[in-house]
Nucleic acid binder design. Structure first.
Lengths: 146, 146
DNA sequence: ATGGCTGCAAACGTTTTGCACTTTT
DNA sequence: AAAAGTGCAAAACGTTTGCAGCCAT
C-alpha cells in the first residue's frame, strides 16, 4: 500500500514544502489508485477538500510529482492530460475502451523481456508506458447488437 | 514495403480525393518510417514539397489518416502530437531517450501474451501503444562522465 | 457540375507564466 | 527571515472550426 507519510517524507527530503494544497492533491491521487484522473478531475476533487485550491497550483504540483516519479502522466484522450500515482508494489497497465472510455487495470507486464532485448544495444530502460485499446465486454455487446 | 499507390488507392476507394497536399503528407510520412514526426515537422517537410501547404490542412489530413488506420498518433513529448505511418509488415515499437529525444525501433512485441490475458475478461483488444523510456548508449556515457 | 478540399483567420481549450502576496520551514 | 508556494489574470500554445473560394472527380 501507498502511505501518504512516506510520500510527504520524500517530498520534504527533496526540499519541497508541505502545503495544504499539495497535500490534498496527493490525497486525491491516493484515493484513486488504478484510475487515470484528468487535471480537471483532480482540481475539482481537491476543491472539495480545500476550496481555495487553484488550477495553476494543481498543474504546478503535478509537474513536480511527475519529475520525481511519484506520478505517471498519460494522454489517453488527447484532450487533457491524465495522471495516476505510482505504486511500486502494484505496478500495472491499463486497457482502455474506445467506446465508453472506461479503463481497467491489467497486472501483467512483459517489460523484462523488452528491456533485456534493448539492453543489448546499450540502451538503459528506466520507464515504460503500455496501453491497450479496444472494446470492453459491455461495448462489444452493443456493437454486435447494432 | 509500403507502396504509395496502395495507400492512395485505399483513400480513393473511401471517397477521398487525391490532392497535392494530401499526397505530399503521405510522401513525407513514407520517407520517415520508423520515426515519429511532430505535426510541425510534417508541416515543414510538406512545405518543401508543396509550398502552399497549410497547417490546418496537415491537421485535417492526419486526422483522416488516423481514422482509417493508416497512421499512428502518439503524445510522447506532451507538447504536440506525433505521427508515424502504419506498416503492417513491419510492426514495431520505440525506445525513447530521455536526454537527447532520439527514438529507436524495437522489433519485438509481446502483445499476444497481453491480449490473451485480457480476452479472458471479454475485452477485445484492437490496438496498443508501447513505449520504452530511458537513456541511449551515447547519453548513458555522458551521465557517467559527469 | 458536384462534392470534397483548401487557405485563411478567428476561436477554442489546455497549459504556462509573471507577479505580488502568503505560507512553510 | 528566507525560500518556496500560491492565487490571479494574462499570455502562450497546440488544435479546431467556419467560411468563401478552389480543385479533383
Amino acid at each position: 500500500m501507498i502511505k501518504i507519510d512516506e510520500i510527504e517524507e520524500s517530498l520534504k527530503n527533496k526540499g519541497y514544502k508541505l502545503t495544504k494544497q499539495r497535500n490534498s492533491i496527493i490525497e486525491v491521487l491516493i484515493e484513486n489508485i488504478g484510475k487515470f484522473l484528468s487535471v480537471e478531475d483532480i482540481y475539482l476533487k481537491c476543491k472539495d477538500k480545500y476550496p481555495k485550491t487553484n488550477l495553476s497550483t494543481v498543474y504546478r504540483n503535478l509537474e513536480i510529482l511527475e519529475d520525481i516519479n511519484l506520478v505517471h502522466k498519460t494522454n489517453i484522450t488527447g484532450a487533457s492530460a491524465s495522471y495516476e500515482i505510482v505504486c511500486s508494489d502494484c505496478h500495472h497497465h491499463h486497457v482502455i475502451c474506445k467506446t465508453c472510455g472506461k479503463t481497467e487495470v491489467i497486472d501483467f507486464c512483459p517489460i523484462q523481456e523488452f528491456t533485456s532485448k534493448v539492453a543489448e544495444d546499450g540502451f538503459l530502460v528506466t520507464d515504460h508506458k503500455i496501453e491497450l485499446y479496444g472494446y470492453c465486454k459491455n461495448c462489444t455487446k452493443k456493437v454486435i447488437k447494432e
